[in-house]
Design a protein around this nucleic acid. Structure first.
Lengths: 206, 206
DNA sequence: TAGATTGTTAATCGATTAACAATC
DNA sequence: TAGATTGTTAATCGATTAACAATC
């Protein structure tokens, strides 16, 4: 392991490598090369080797990488060789979809609670969860020691909800609300806004 | 307008600026500065000025930028001063959520059809749309001249669906399936995978 | 005018690529 | 051994920042 600080842009590629490797493993493939992995994920072989080598010598000259070994290492590096409990705030359509999404389990995440501030929704079931009142969010999350949350609330309430999450001790927020939020430096935020993603592509269309 | 090719990393920030400006406009703010906008979106003032200046001189020394003027310019640059029809493939929970999402309209997008390959779903209503058979996707999309699509299908069918979309003439794909897909260079792809985003943050947690 | 803020230049900083010795 | 592929270095390329003249 390298003691230097690893650039975030490299960290951002590791989950993509991991995802591709897990898929290869499911297909029964045992080893791969930077060349082959690069073709799968659309990244140059040189860059993949450089990225991986930041963390150790995980490959073998002549044969490449053992997929199961590299998966283990990436899961270790990314801290997903454990389960992370995640809270959802906002029980609209998107909150529902995330609560029922089957794709978290084998990636290291487990949804454990869902909140909404609409009295008409509190108490209703979403999949296996009962919608809880956002008023109880800080207590519930702090008590449960949850460190990650997904926000599927309107832009108008996103900052207030983010403030509550920070207050509750959450350290990583996946924000589906179409607005930039301000949080302390110690809290990480990732944004998912389909319109923003689409607009990044329309630039190239005519 | 600059004739040189603008780096994609700059294009990627423009929708974020636009989103913040539209929010400011809704709040009745008339002008802003690179400093103020930067505080909203978490980007340095110098970078914002540099990004914007790639496309023209849209600001005024001493007073900053007219928000409505800058919004117009960014919408023009990003090609969203028009409506783009978008197809959804995959009528699961995520497809449903996107079909019912209210946040596309004022960002330049309109969902116009939704497909699924499950015979039990074809013919059912999702919001205002009737689910159509994926078997008819190529014809329907080609005839309608749709250039953008959102894929909310399982990873196992994502590549096959992407191939169909390409065949139908789609030029931009927003891929919610947790897998990298291969498309011709002329087709743009953006990825949304909550697990990948969460894993990018767990690296920093302990 | 005085203060504020742009657009732009030059300097710095960081990321990617190409190439190849090492070695499995 | 011969072929393949890593890990790493140096070179290239690209992005960000700092600074400031221009000017509203």
């Amino acid at each position: 392991m390298n003691a230097d600080k690893i650039p975030d842009i490299i960290i951002g590629r590791l989950p993509v490598y991991l995802r591709a490797l897990q898929r290869m493993a499911e297909n029964g493939v045992k080893t791969t090369s930077s060349q082959e992995l690069g073709e799968h994920v659309g990244i140059s072989a040189a860059q993949i080797r450089k990225d991986i080598s930041q963390f150790g010598e995980f490959g073998k000259q002549g044969t490449g990488y053992s997929i199961s070994f590299l998966i283990d290492k990436l899961r270790e590096i990314l801290n997903v060789n454990r389960m992370w409990d995640v809270a959802i705030v906002g029980a609209g359509d998107m909150g529902h979809a995330l609560a029922r999404y089957q794709g978290f389990t084998n990636r290291g995440f487990r949804v454990v609670m869902i909140f909404d501030n609409d009295p008409a929704k509190v108490g209703l079931k979403v999949g296996e969860y009962t919608i809880e009142d956002t008023a109880k969010l800080v207590d519930r999350i702090r008590t449960s020691k949850i460190k990650m949350a997904m926000m599927t609330v309107p832009a108008s309430t996103a900052q207030a909800v983010a403030d509550k999450l920070v207050q509750a001790g959450v350290k990583a927020i996946l924000n589906y609300a179409p607005i930039s939020i301000n949080v302390p430096e110690s809290v990480h935020v990732q944004y998912i806004d389909p319109s923003t993603h689409l607009q990044r592509m329309t630039y190239y269309l005519d």
